[in-house]
Simulated assay, not measured.
Amino acid sequence: MPLIEDVLASGTNLFDFLVRGGLADTRRTPSTIIAEGPKQTVHRYTEQVPVEGPPVLLVPPLGAPAVCMDLRRGCSLAEHLVLSGRPTYLVDYGPMAFEDRAHGLEFWIRDVLPAAIRAVSEDRGGEPVQLVGWCLGGLFSLLTTAAFAELPVSAVAMIASPVDLSKVRLADPLRLLGKVTGGQVVGTALRTLGTVPANLVSLAFKTTALSTYLRKPLTVFKYSADRDALAHIEAVDDMMRNMYGYPGRAIAQAYHRLVRANELATGRVEGPTRTVHLSDVRVPVMNIAGDSDVLAPEAATHHVVRVLPNAPEVRLHTAPGGHLGVLTGRTAAETTWTYLDSFLDES
């Protein structure tokens, strides 16, 4: 029989979680804006210990708010890097509106990320920048580095960034639909919508972990005595309620180029005005897969080693967690972040 103290603690935790909220410490790591531009705000996190080494720029994906890099105190990659004494920065795209519908993937690769990299380098006296990107943010980092060799980039660390999309079984229905219709159904729908609304992005993300959401009541009850576990569920739920929309052009390109044509897996991506060759990447690269990630499974993520023949080093790791958990789950500090620290220290 559970002790009366455990029963009381569970009751208090469940009341706070279900009624009062506020279990998660979601205070953001303090930062200062150092540069702004179209769809980009570059933050420098406030130093909390003496800093040294090259600057690190956190690169989020589209769809997820930039707080994915700073989820909650104790499970914040930004906080970890700051407390480790690294000069740490973040590029935030902000929410997407209907007027952003014409922005394609090339906008982030050609305009947004290069400007953010230069701003960070200049803020650190011209030092080269280490890029750390999650999901599509990792692919943006890799493609930008390949496209612009003159940029001051010294390393690219990717977390849950799928390179061979044929290994993402969740995308099989979209590939089949594209094969049958020549991509017209999805393409027409995206042109009609103009953007993919934030609520649909949130729903789609939840659908990828449907079993987790269906089991949520049982999970909450199971961890009712674990206040930190409930706090993490609360922080993730809060992020999911605040997802961003996708520009229609960008998501259409992702569908046609990355899902249907699987161009990344070939090491060559056709842009509107130029072809980007991943063989032009000449800095160390790392990609970390989540062992239960259905959006970026290990086979899709680790394929990156096959398309970077000229990178001096390509590190591959697998850590516990799904798509978000591998980045900022409760075990990330002992796994993903440890791999990341070693890579940044040695690159």
Rank of each mutant, 00 (worst) to 15 (best):
A9K: 13
L14D: 10
D25V: 00
T26Y: 00
G37R: 04
Q40T: 14
R44K: 15
T46W: 05
Q48D: 09
E52K: 14
G53S: 03
P55N: 05
P65V: 09
V67C: 03
D70S: 09
D70C: 08
P87W: 04
Y89W: 13
D92T: 01
Y93S: 13
P95G: 00
P95A: 07
D100K: 05
L113V: 03
A115L: 10
A119I: 14
A119R: 11
V120Y: 03
E122D: 15
G125T: 01
E127N: 02
G133R: 04
C135A: 14
L139V: 12
A149L: 08
E150Q: 15
I159Y: 07
P162G: 06
D164W: 07
L165E: 06
K167C: 07
L170Q: 10
D172M: 05
V180K: 15
G182Y: 12
V196F: 10
V201T: 13
A204P: 08
F205P: 03
F205C: 11
K206W: 08
Y213R: 07
R215V: 01
P217I: 06
S224Q: 14
D237Q: 14
N242A: 01
M243H: 09
Y244M: 12
G248R: 02
I251S: 09
R257S: 13
R260H: 12
L264W: 09
L278R: 05
S279K: 14
V281Q: 08
S292M: 05
D293Q: 09
A300G: 11
R306V: 00
R306E: 15
A311K: 07
F343A: 06
F343P: 13
L344C: 04
